[in-house]
Design a protein around this nucleic acid. Sequence first.
DNA 1: ATAAATAGTTAGTATTATTAACTATTAATT
DNA 2: AATTAATAGTTAATAATACTAACTATTTAT
Lengths: 161, 161
Amino acid sequence: MDNNICNRLPLGRSLAILAKTYYGALTKRLEHLEIERYYSILILIENHGAKCTQQFICDELKMDKVSMVRIVDYLIEKKYVKKVVNPKDRREHFIQLTKKAIEVLPAIHQAIDEVNSAALKGIAKEKQKELYSQLNSIQMNLAHLPSQKIYINYKKASKKV
Amino acid sequence: MDNNICNRLPLGRSLAILAKTYYGALTKRLEHLEIERYYSILILIENHGAKCTQQFICDELKMDKVSMVRIVDYLIEKKYVKKVVNPKDRREHFIQLTKKAIEVLPAIHQAIDEVNSAALKGIAKEKQKELYSQLNSIQMNLAHLPSQKIYINYKKASKKV
DNA sequence: ATAAATAGTTAGTATTATTAACTATTAATT
DNA sequence: AATTAATAGTTAATAATACTAACTATTTAT
């Protein structure tokens, strides 16, 4: 049997395992901050600026908006973000970083850098870039893949009708 | 802002999104089979043979054994697997494929092949191998990563003590 | 013979995802 | 201008999954 995890399992399963292992390592480094797994949200807002609506965050992180309500509530309770109604469109709420979040972000980046460089150890810098671009390309390829059910092709012999 | 998902988000988050997208595509192709996301288990057993214990499956798929109890129950209910007590060690139960599972596996493989080739479109065969080997190496690197909490390095100026 | 370890199970809890129904607001249509 | 659609966010209910602890049965180690 092949000892490469990607050959033993469906690609998506391998990716899920990687993601879980990565999250475990990262979350342990940051669990005392009480941001759970929500550092991605802080980083998203950090990158995108003061105009992140909940819907935007859901779209970027491929999460559903119902779950996002509670996550944002949690982050507000922990004082990492605040909600600001968009005066131009009062349906939208901008989720913005607080002073506390800004203070904490360097530690988050440090943890991510540590785990990233541990994860990518042994992979040359150019290869890392190539890997990132391949992963991005996979995501793009899958994002709008039409779905068609696959049916079982029973052999006539095994079907006694 | 960089438009590559891996540069916008922590690597683990990008991988989780990829995994989710992949699973979505695959599950839609197979949802009528009522194996939920458990085709990985069938494939694992297919590869490893008749001596897969629940614990082995958990170790391979990085799942916890408590959840595995219910999943195996579900797969038994749907007649995809059966439980056989290991006569050499009666604590262990081998999880084995049924005739139904064996009949269904070609359809699962076809679906995986379809989604894989869609996902990897535009990536040359040798590059695919390289990608798989990089993903495997990331998993190995992360698997036994020691964890150390990262603390916030407050500037003296911002701390009025 | 006893203690420790392992495989699996059950119960309880927490997290997350999913669906549907809802409010408030904005945009589109007649 | 009035009505209808659509959008952002919320709430409630349900289902899936993960995690912890406590438990049984069995095997291994002392």
